[in-house]
Amino acid sequence: MVEIDDIILKITLISKKIRRLVIKMLSIAGSGHPGGSLSCVEIVTTLYFHIMRHRPLEPDWDDRDRFVLSKGHSCPTLYANLVLSGYFPEEELKRLRMLDSILQGHPDRLMTPGIEVSTGSLGQGLSCACGMALAGKIDKKDFWVYVLLGDGEIQEGQVWEAAMSASHYKLDNLIAFLDYNKFQIDGKVCDVMNIEPLKEKWASFGWYVQEIDGHNIAEIISAVDCAKKIKEMPKMIICHTIKGKGVSFMENKPEWHGVTPTKEEAERALSELV
């Protein structure tokens, strides 16, 4: 098991770097979404640095696995992963959200190398991911499609249209993650519009459901391994996470959904991320 321990250690270190980059780029940009970016760091980083088959120097490689960030506002985490994977230089992060930057406020596939689907309007990404998975099946390709949804996002009706269709088409090449950080903009998800019982909901829509700690890299890896073995149905991995994870003053604070740290706050955050 030395090997898996090495992998976990590697991803733990990269995740820390990702968090640092997220804080820095958001602080420079002066606008954006720290809370939901920090809650999904381990999920996205484990995908890019261990699970997914991809070629940063050949983003359009036909046989690549696809990742769809359906909760598009968390793109800082994706951008940082693309940088550390080698899709584009780190310098670009300094221009996040600025005029003519390749890094738009929400993911734009035409502007940023490595972005599969343009998102930002919540509730649309799962349908796109399903379409890609179905196309892969028609063409008998063996790529996997991964998609990350927010817990507030799944209040959108289109998500459930997509959920129903994914099991109808037996999209077993589709693995979805739910970033279950328990918060949305206006407060706790359970207060705004309760989404529970969650496991039962997805299961009743015909999905194979697992529930894990979304910050535990070993659990993410083994959940994906397990999901890959299940045939004939789409897979949902409900990831319990903490909004703002890694920065003490942002954790579980809905105020940090869409507010960026000042220079001093960023320094304080970075001092916690060493």
């Binding site: 649309q124 349908s127 399903c130 196309a135 289109q158 997509a162």
Partner: peptide
């Protein structure tokens, strides 16, 4: 809506 999203994926 879902159909339209699938079209994007296709």
């Amino acid at each position: 809506a879902n159909m339209t999203g699938y079209a994007a994926g296709f």
